[in-house]
């Protein structure tokens, strides 16, 4: 009975299941690989930081390395949580709920986006401290300003690239979800 129904399916169900299982396995492997890579790099970085910490006499280097490491781990954890959320969109929830979630997911400014500011700030301070001794031709205040202005400029460029991608790919989806919500609730 079951086989008959499956055979009547407009698509080859066995091939589809096989493809889905392959895709699941691929996603799982990809996620594990990314995580392994992240934690592997973190381990190497801890090792190098530890060596530097012992060998260097500069407290700027020591503190800078530590802050950069904390920023790196925070980034890794944040990206992991984002990846999990984007990967698991549940279509089995009521339509209104799905649309609301989509509208929030594709919002440009989100409260949880503020979490990214903490590791960005730590990284900025950490890298600045680590490079502090590299620009000895500049006054200490100018060294900080030079680095922070460059860092800010790079962040602005990164934000603009992100904004363009959002506007092209995610904004239309958000607008569509909001339009449907409005129509449902009118």
């Amino acid at each position: 009975m079951e086989t008959n129904h499956i055979n009547q399916s407009p698509i080859d169900l066995e091939s589809l299941i096989s493809g889905l299982k392959t895709e699941d396995a691929r996603n799982l492997k990809l996620m594990l690989n990314i995580q392994s890579m992240m934690w592997g790099i973190a381990a190497v970085y801890v090792f190098i930081s530890a060596l530097k910490f012992i060998m260097t006499t500069s407290w700027y280097d020591k503190l800078g390395g530590f802050l950069t490491l904390v920023a790196f781990v925070a980034f890794a954890l944040l990206f992991r949580s984002y990846y999990k959320e984007y990967k698991t969109i549940d279509y089995g929830i009521p339509t209104i709920e799905m649309l609301k979630k989509a509208a929030i997911r594709y919002e440009l400014f989100q409260w949880r986006g503020l979490y990214v500011l903490a590791p960005l700030l730590l990284e900025g301070i950490g890298l600045n401290l680590m490079m502090f001794d590299d620009f000895t031709n500049l006054e200490p205040l100018n060294r900080i300003l030079f680095f922070q202005i460059s860092y800010f400029f790079v962040m602005v460029i990164a934000f603009l690239v992100g904004y363009i991608i959002w506007k092209k790919r995610q904004k239309p989806l958000r607008d569509y979800a909001l339009a449907l919500l409005k129509e449902f609730q009118s």
């Binding site: 009975m1 079951e2 129904h5 499956i6 009547q8 399916s9 169900l13 299941i17």
Partner: peptide, 8 residues
């Protein structure tokens, strides 16, 4: 498979 058989 059961879900598809029953809801296809």
């Amino acid at each position: 498979k059961k879900i598809i058989a029953e809801n296809g």
